[in-house]
Amino acid sequence: MLGLLYKDQATIWSSYRKNFLLVVLLYTVMAFTMDMKFMLFALLFIGGLYTTSALVFDEQSHWDTYARTLPVSGRQIVGAKYLLALLWMAASFVLAYVLLTLCDLFKGQVAENLLYNLTGCLVTLGLVMAYYALGYVLSYKIGAVRARSGVILAIALIIAIALVGSNTLENTSFFSFPLLDETTLLVLIAGGSLAVGLVLFILSWVVSTAIYTKKEF
């Protein structure tokens, strides 16, 4: 399993290292100088996106034919992909949250935004997990390259939801939920999103494993 993780991470890092650093730099500059802080939430999505490229590389090199001759099970092969995606999303989560906090610190708004940033990151993480849950199943079913068309549509959808969600959160009057205080409500929203995303992600792993083990190369 570690070898499979390493293989994908090495492929991603050697192919996208410069691209990743450039994206982080660009989004950070946009957030700090152009009042476009929401771009930092997109880092969570970008983090997962690199891991789906590993599937495209696998198809190009017919890796799965080779992998099936190695002492690893189909469950491990698929599991390594999902685990790597989770690790990238987790790392992107930390990176996005740190950059958001630094951005607020820079603008002198850190105290009032700390909780909103955390909630925003958690909600985005849940959405991103749900998105990749679908993306991975599609990739295993119809192939990563073809699944990318669906991915492009989903990107637009995710951005729209994230924008609407972030505006809604900012404009929500917590007095309209008389039984809940602001913190509880934010925790519920973030926790709910994360829980749904995680459940979908696990379900996706189970389905993808079933698809993969039946697949022929």
Partner: peptide, 26 residues
């Protein structure tokens, strides 16, 4: 040990990457 004509690691990798990956697999 298997060698297929067209199925192997992605061509963006190098031998050092492959060695470390196979060490984890085997």
């Amino acid at each position: 040990g298997v060698v297929f004509e067209e199925a192997y690691f992605y061509e963006g990798m190098n031998a050092a990457h492959i060695g470390r990956s196979m060490a984890g697999i085997f």
